[in-house]
Amino acid sequence: MAASSSENDSKNEGPSSREAEQPQVAAIRMPTAEEIRAQEVWNNCAVRSVVSGVMGGGLGFFMGLFLGALDNPIMQDEMTARQQLIYNAKQMGRRSWSSAKAFAIMGLVFSAVECVVEKARAKHDTTNTVIAGCVTGGTISARGGPRAACAGCAGFAAFSVAIEKFFDRHT
Score class of each variant (00 low, 15 high):
residue 1 M to Q: 03
residue 1 M to E: 05
residue 1 M to V: 05
residue 4 S to P: 00
residue 5 S to P: 00
residue 8 N to T: 15
residue 14 G to C: 03
residue 14 G to M: 06
residue 15 P to Y: 05
residue 16 S to H: 12
residue 18 R to A: 11
residue 19 E to I: 15
residue 23 P to K: 10
residue 28 I to C: 01
residue 34 E to R: 09
residue 36 I to Y: 01
residue 38 A to N: 12
residue 45 C to D: 05
residue 46 A to S: 07
residue 48 R to G: 06
residue 49 S to W: 00
residue 50 V to N: 00
residue 52 S to D: 01
residue 57 G to Q: 03
residue 62 F to I: 14
residue 68 G to T: 02
residue 69 A to M: 11
residue 69 A to S: 15
residue 77 D to K: 10
residue 77 D to W: 02
residue 80 T to C: 04
residue 81 A to W: 09
residue 81 A to N: 09
residue 84 Q to P: 05
residue 84 Q to I: 13
residue 85 L to T: 13
residue 88 N to Q: 15
residue 90 K to P: 07
residue 91 Q to C: 02
residue 97 W to D: 07
residue 102 A to G: 13
residue 106 M to Q: 12
residue 108 L to W: 12
residue 110 F to E: 03
residue 111 S to K: 02
residue 113 V to I: 14
residue 119 K to D: 06
residue 120 A to N: 09
residue 121 R to V: 04
residue 122 A to G: 08
residue 125 D to R: 10
residue 127 T to E: 04
residue 128 N to H: 03
residue 129 T to S: 02
residue 129 T to G: 03
residue 130 V to P: 06
residue 135 V to Q: 01
residue 137 G to N: 00
residue 137 G to V: 00
residue 139 T to H: 00
residue 148 A to T: 14
residue 153 C to S: 09
residue 154 A to C: 11
residue 155 G to L: 01
residue 156 F to K: 05
residue 157 A to L: 07
residue 159 F to N: 08
residue 160 S to T: 15
residue 162 A to T: 13
residue 162 A to P: 08
residue 163 I to E: 11
